[in-house]
């Protein structure tokens, strides 16, 4: 069993259209870097200099990691990680 990572639609271009990918247990930032080795560009879209971008929310089992241990949050086998970037859209241009 691995970690299930949900990829938001705008980033699925980087994961060959996959909405869910498997991640490696361990520190969240290491999981992101590992995903980047398979899906280049992913880390840059969600993080900067090893820190999660402040307009990207990452939830581990529905809890926001900013209020857990941020990038250092430990992710275990069977956990679900959701990447939810802020989206500006509504009124539409």
């Amino acid at each position: 069993m691995a970690v299930k990572v949900r990829i938001p639609t705008p980033l699925q271009r980087l994961t060959d259209g996959k909405e869910e990918v498997e991640g490696k247990p361990g520190k969240l930032i290491d999981l992101i870097m590992d995903l980047d080795s398979r899906y280049p560009g992913l880390a840059e879209r969600v993080s900067e200099n090893g820190k999660i971008r402040r307009f990207v929310n990452i939830y581990v089992n529905e809890e926001d990691v900013r209020f857990l241990n941020a990038e250092e949050t430990e992710v275990k086998d069977g956990d679900e990680v959701s990447i939810v970037p802020a989206i500006a859209g509504g009124r539409g241009i």
Partner: peptide, 19 residues
């Protein structure tokens, strides 16, 4: 609190049923 920083602005795709 929910989103501490604004995402970059973009012209995004959208299907009318979504809004």
């Amino acid at each position: 609190c929910l989103f501490p920083e604004a995402p970059p602005s973009e012209t995004f795709p959208v299907v009318g049923a979504t809004p």
